[in-house]
C-alpha cells in the first residue's frame, strides 16, 4: 500500500471519527493507577508455577533414571523411612507455625509475628539438618550423586528442594530483621504473604518427594 492510498483512506474516514478517537474507544489510553504492589501476589504465584515446572522436570528425570542403579545401591539399601517421617513432620510443623505467623500478622502484632517466624525457622533448620545428615551419610557410604543415574537424579531432585528451603530461610531471617526495622508496613505484609506462598509451596513439593522418591522406592 502506497503512502497516497493511506492518505486517501484516512481522509475518507476522517469525518466519522479521527484515528485517535477510534483508538480511544477501544483501548484505555490513560495510564491508570494500580495501588502499589497490587499485582505482586499474582506475579509471585506465576513464579511459583514456573518453579513447579522445574520440579516437574526433576521428577521426570527421577522417573526415567530412578531404576538405573549401575550395579550400585538402590532405594531399599539407602533410605530410612523413620528419618524421612521425622523430616516430613518438621516441614509440616513449620507450615502450620508459618500459618500462625500470618494470623498474628493480620492482628498487627509485630513481636508475635517475629516469634512465630523464628519458630518456623527452627523447624525449617531441623528439616535441613536432617536432610544434610542423610546426604552426608549417603556420600560417606559411597552412594554420592556420581555413583549411578538413580543417585544423580535423587540428589538433583531432593537437593533442589533443599536449596529452596535454604533460600526460604535466608528470606525469612531477612524479613524478621525488616520487621524489627520498619514494623508491619504494607510492603512488609506483602513480603510475608509472598514468603507464606513460597513456604507452603515447598511443603506441597515435599509431598511429591516423599511419596514418589521415598515411599515408592521402599514398597
Amino acid at each position: 500500500m502506497t503512502a497516497s492510498t493511506m492518505d486517501t483512506m484516512t481522509n475518507a474516514t476522517a469525518h466519522v471519527a479521527s484515528p485517535e478517537q477510534r483508538t480511544a474507544a477501544f483501548y484505555e489510553l490513560e495510564p491508570h493507577h494500580h495501588p502499589e504492589g497490587a499485582s505482586t501476589m499474582l506475579g509471585f504465584w506465576i513464579y511459583l508455577m514456573s518453579d513447579c515446572l522445574i520440579f516437574a522436570m526433576l521428577f521426570a528425570a527421577y522417573g526415567v533414571l530412578g531404576g538405573n542403579f549401575a550395579a550400585g545401591p538402590g532405594p531399599k539399601d539407602l533410605f530410612e523411612l523413620p528419618l524421612i517421617a521425622l523430616n516430613t513432620a518438621m516441614l509440616l510443623f513449620s507450615s502450620i507455625t508459618y500459618g500462625f505467623a500470618m494470623l498474628v500478622m493480620e492482628k498487627g502484632n509485630v513481636r508475635a509475628t517475629q516469634a512465630w517466624l523464628l519458630v518456623t525457622a527452627v523447624f525449617g533448620a531441623c528439616f535441613l539438618a536432617i536432610e544434610l545428615y542423610e546426604f552426608s551419610h549417603l556420600i560417606h557410604e559411597g552412594a554420592g550423586p556420581w555413583r549411578s543415574g538413580f543417585l544423580t537424579a535423587f540428589f538433583s531432585l531432593v537437593g533442589t528442594h533443599g536449596l529452596h528451603v535454604t533460600f526460604g530461610l535466608v528470606w525469612l531471617f531477612t524479613l524478621v530483621i525488616q520487621l524489627s526495622q520498619k514494623g508491619l508496613t504494607q510492603a512488609n505484609k506483602r513480603r510475608l504473604q509472598c514468603l507464606s506462598l513460597f513456604w507452603h509451596f515447598l511443603d506441597v513439593i515435599w509431598i511429591g518427594v516423599f511419596t514418589f522418591v521415598y515411599l515408592m522406592g521402599m514398597i
Partner: peptide, 15 residues
Amino acid sequence: EHGGSHGSMRDYVIG
C-alpha cells in the same frame, strides 16, 4: 489489597 483470602485459625488447624 491482594484479592486473595486469608486463612483463619480454623482453616490452618483443619489443614
